[in-house]
Simulated assay, not measured.
Amino acid sequence: MSHIQKLLFLVVLFSSSVAYGQLTEDPEDRRDQGKDPLKTQTVDGQPLPFGQRLRFGGGINGFRFGNPFSLGVSPVIGYQATERLIVGVGGTYNYTRYKAPYYNPTTYNQFGGRGFLMYEFIPSILPNLYLHGEIENTTIQIKQDGYGSIPNQSLTSPLVGLTYSQPISRRFGVNLTALYNLNYNDNAGLAQSIYGSPLVIRLSFF
């Protein structure tokens, strides 16, 4: 092989390596170009695999010491469907215990699930601000010491509002959500037991 042929071979090999690197380049590398990372595709427009669009996380809610004691967890799985749309599902569990002497000893077990949509509607003006809508179904189980369990009660609630997400990486962020419960007035007694207010505030991570 002549020197010219060797040189051409090295040029072709180098060019192929660069092209492959661009094809598989992580969207985070766009930060070096002064651009936001792409959420659903590589820098050359190839769609990201399903697994790289998933976002996992959740939050801790309703945390109180003393009387009553309360602690809740809310795991979440989100999927980046488009550059501006996130769809997801989540679960909720909240434990509350009232103790004597100020209350009749009572235990509340609250559990359920929800599906949600988040749409980034004005990214050119205020990026990372999402319209947020969800349907949540919650069941509450109440047990009073000495009286046994009260029959379970369930409530399905449509909630609408806004979420502001502060990205930490392409697949993880800190989310502050403010929602209004459209079903609150129609189910005042049960809704008050579950939510306490038509306004629902959450801090989550996903």
Rank of each mutant, 00 (worst) to 15 (best):
H3C: 07
K6M: 11
K6V: 07
L8I: 03
F9W: 01
V12Q: 01
S15G: 00
S16Q: 05
S17V: 02
S17T: 05
S17E: 10
Y20L: 12
Q22W: 00
E25V: 10
E25A: 11
E28I: 13
E28V: 13
D29Q: 13
R30T: 09
R31L: 10
D32N: 12
D32G: 14
Q33M: 14
G34M: 12
D36Q: 13
L38H: 15
Q41L: 14
T42Q: 12
T42A: 09
V43N: 11
D44W: 15
G45Q: 09
Q46K: 13
P49H: 11
F50H: 11
F50N: 13
L54Q: 00
L54I: 02
R55T: 06
F56P: 01
I60S: 05
R64V: 00
G66W: 13
P68Q: 06
S70W: 10
S70F: 15
L71N: 07
L71Y: 06
V73D: 13
S74P: 11
P75I: 14
V76L: 10
V76K: 08
I77P: 07
I77L: 09
I77V: 14
G78Y: 02
G78K: 06
G78S: 07
Y79N: 15
A81W: 10
T82R: 01
T82W: 03
T82Y: 03
I86W: 07
G88S: 11
G91F: 09
G91E: 06
G91L: 14
G91H: 02
Y93I: 09
N94Y: 04
T96D: 06
Y98P: 08
A100P: 09
Y102E: 07
T106W: 07
Y108I: 05
Q110R: 11
F111K: 09
G112T: 07
G113H: 04
F116T: 11
L117E: 15
P123M: 10
S124Q: 14
L126C: 06
L126I: 13
P127E: 06
N128A: 04
L129K: 00
Y130K: 01
L131A: 01
L131K: 04
H132Y: 14
I135E: 03
E136Y: 08
N137C: 11
T139I: 03
T139P: 10
Y147G: 08
G148H: 13
S149P: 09
S149A: 10
I150M: 13
P151Q: 15
N152L: 10
N152D: 12
S154C: 07
S154P: 03
T156Q: 12
P158E: 08
L162C: 04
S165A: 08
Q166I: 05
Q166S: 02
P167M: 01
I168R: 02
R170C: 08
R171M: 14
R171Q: 05
F172H: 08
G173N: 11
G173L: 06
N175H: 04
N175M: 12
L176P: 00
L179M: 15
Y184T: 00
N185Q: 07
N187V: 09
L190G: 08
L190D: 03
L190C: 12
A191Q: 04
A191V: 00
A191E: 05
G196Q: 04
G196Y: 04
G196T: 01
G196F: 02
S197Y: 03
I201G: 10
I201S: 12
